[in-house]
Design a binder for these strands. Structure first.
Length: 187
DNA sequence: TAGGCCATCTGGTCCT
DNA sequence: AGGACCAGATGGCCTA
């Protein structure tokens, strides 16, 4: 796994919103080739693409063609989607900044960020459990409640992922530090 | 050059 | 009805 700190990517030039999918990417294979609902989408998109090809790759004329209002809606929709993705990326960045990791010079990828965050949370939970159980033996403090919650989470996780081995609190700490290490090695 | 990661576009579906 | 969300497709950039 590699990560990199690369300059901001330049945005791909916006495609002609009036163009049919076939016009924009003539070589594009039929989309929606995976997933249960995809079959319907596949058929409808393919039909549209084929229709465009049948017309020599030109925009469908007449009522079948995209009206200006529909083009405008598509552009607005694209813009909203961009903003949504930007927000998502901002959230990823915020998450990166609170996860301690050894490769401060290199940006964590999204998958690395999520994986590391998950194990970081687990290790923190384990740490808190260890500390609170040590300091509050038998008391009705946060320790026992936290431990109950932890056990519930463990049981749910084990139920969700069939055959997932239950990891003891200290195991998460070990796993997290191992992962940090492997990310460093893998760079 | 292949593979990984990413941004963007797009159409379908879900939700308010 | 319109916006949010989702997933597939595509192409660019980067590194090994």
């Amino acid at each position: 796994m590699k990560t990199k700190s690369r300059p901001p990517r330049r945005r791909a030039p916006p495609q002609d919103p009036e163009a049919t999918p076939a016009e924009r990417t003539p070589d594009r294979p039929p989309p929606g080739s995976g997933g249960p609902d995809a079959a319907k989408a596949l058929r409808s998109r393919t039909a549209r693409a084929q229709g465009a090809r049948a017309e020599g790759g030109r925009r469908r004329p007449g009522p079948g063609g995209r009206r200006e209002s529909s083009v405008q809606r598509r552009l607005e929709s694209n813009e909203r989607e961009r903003q949504r993705m930007h927000k998502l990326n901002n959230a990823f960045q915020a998450l990166r900044e609170v996860i301690p990791h050894v490769r401060a010079d290199k940006k964590l990828s999204k998958i690395e960020t999520l994986t590391l965050a998950k194990n970081y949370i687990k290790s923190l939970t384990a740490t808190i459990l260890t500390m609170s159980s040590g300091r509050l033996p038998g008391l009705d403090g946060p320790g026992p409640k936290l431990y109950q919650h932890y056990q519930q989470q463990q049981q749910q996780a084990a139920g969700g992922a069939l055959g997932a081995p239950e990891v003891p609190p200290e195991g998460h700490l070990q796993k997290y530090s191992t992962q940090i290490h492997s990310f460093r090695e893998g760079s």
